[in-house]
């Protein structure tokens, strides 16, 4: 019994000397680190599961037929669950967009840069105000287009011109042009 007492006493001091006095303690550290590695490798898929799932990614492209859109008309459609504006600019709107001095703009971009080569009457933009994400007016029949003839966001009064560039109000950037391409003369594929 006496030696038992000394035995437990020793172990108590051994327990306190974990600072690497005993080389065998390496295995304790190794086991604990392995548990850590395991926890991290489980955490990765558990975090990744919040990323878009395969079906969401698969629906990330939209095909649009332009044939029925008359000059001056805009259609509102959906791309990645957000509004997409496809606008057939009239020659007057093209001219008004082109005569703006790029130096005056908050986010300088020309109409050419915002449309495809040879198709500058087709303005394809997201219908999401770059300020706080409201849907700007101006796409629907009879909606107010703002003082620059493009789009007008009713939330905080941002006005966009006929190239959907920000001209007035709090929005910091032009309406975003999504990646798209012409699959034929009268059809585009967005995304």
């Amino acid at each position: 019994m006496e030696s038992m007492a000394s035995l437990t006493e020793d172990s108590a001091t051994a327990g306190e000397e974990q600072g690497g006095v005993r080389r065998r303690d390496f295995i304790n550290v190794a086991a604990a680190s392995f548990a850590g590695v395991g926890a991290v490798s489980i955490a990765l898929p558990l975090i990744n599961q919040m990323n878009p799932s395969a079906d969401v990614l698969a629906e990330a492209s939209t095909e649009i037929d332009l044939a029925a859109i008359q000059p001056g008309q805009t259609i509102k459609t959906i791309f990645r669950k957000q509004p997409l504006f496809v606008r057939h600019l009239t020659p007057a709107e093209v001219a008004s967009a082109e005569k703006v001095d790029l130096g005056e703009l908050r986010d300088p971009q020309s109409l050419e840069q915002r449309t495809k080569a040879g198709k500058k009457q087709w303005l394809v933009t997201m219908g999401v105000c770059t300020h706080l994400g409201c849907v700007p007016l101006g796409a629907g029949e009879g909606e107010v287009k703002g003082e620059f003839g493009g789009y007008f966001c009713p939330c905080h009064g941002s006005s966009y011109d006929t190239a959907a560039r920000i001209r007035k109000g709090p929005a910091p950037k032009n309406l975003e042009v999504p990646p798209y391409e012409f699959t034929s003369d009268t059809a585009i594929k967005v995304g």
Binding site: L7, T8, D10, S11, A14, R24, D25, I27, N28, A30, A31, A32, F34, A35, V37, G38, S41
Partner: peptide
């Protein structure tokens, strides 16, 4: 494979910790 290695390390750590109690 990972868990087998982990199991081995745990057994080692267990024996190590208990070495003075279960000599």
């Amino acid at each position: 494979i990972f868990l087998l290695v982990f199991f081995g390390l745990c057994v080692g750590a267990y024996k190590n910790v208990w070495a003075d109690k279960k000599a």
